[in-house]
């Protein structure tokens, strides 16, 4: 076991881990943040995507020891003070999820994408989401949701919409 520190959703954690433990497993089993899902453990499906120092990364392909000292954001860290993040709000309103298993990965990918692409085209959105697999929705409503989230962010009225 080796000591590491992880700052997850703004909270610093000191942990003892086996070097082989995947970041996803440490988030899920040690920190009980089970919103990060394991879909393939091979880096293809994107369900385990988290933000690692602000960039999307596969937590199934990252050892927790490697991530020691890093800032990590998981799906549990998207909403602030009970107010949903615009991508969360938009996924909900646009019916962009069915079983919900892939959703956290899509949300993390989309949230990061919109930070740098405030007014994306549908094809740019599809491109940005190409590393996340969904088996339920056929993606169309997800693309709708990312478009809607972009609008919410641009118009800066996420708070007005979120408080229902």
């Amino acid at each position: 076991m080796v000591p590491i520190t992880l700052t997850v959703n703004g909270v610093k954690h000191a942990l003892e881990v086996e070097p082989r433990w995947l970041l996803a497993d440490v988030l899920r089993d040690e920190l009980h943040l089970t919103g990060t899902h394991l879909g393939c453990e091979q880096g293809v499906c994107g369900a385990c995507t988290v933000l690692l120092d602000g960039r999307p990364a596969r937590s199934c392909l990252t050892l927790a020891v490697t991530a020691s000292g890093c800032e990590i954001t998981t799906v549990e860290g998207l909403a602030k003070d009970g107010v949903l993040h615009p991508v969360q709000e938009a996924f909900w309103q646009e019916h962009a999820l069915q079983c919900g298993f892939c959703t956290p990965g899509f949300l993390m990918t989309a949230a990061h994408f919109l930070e740098n692409n405030p007014n994306p085209t549908r094809s740019a959105i599809r491109e940005a989401l190409s590393g996340n697999l969904c088996r339920c929705t056929g993606y169309q409503h997800i693309v709708n949701a990312v478009e809607r989230a972009a609008t919410i962010i641009r118009e800066g009225d996420s708070h007005a919409i979120s408080q229902d």
Binding site: P19, E41, Q42, G43, L61, L63, T66
Partner: peptide, 26 residues
């Protein structure tokens, strides 16, 4: 050598690679 891990870790997760020693150069 472990760098980005995007090829090595999948191989290890599938147990197609069993390195005795991993040197993490990150």
């Amino acid at each position: 050598i472990l760098a980005g891990g995007q090829s090595l870790i999948p191989m290890m997760n599938m147990r197609l690679a069993h390195p005795d020693v991993l040197i993490d150069i990150n």
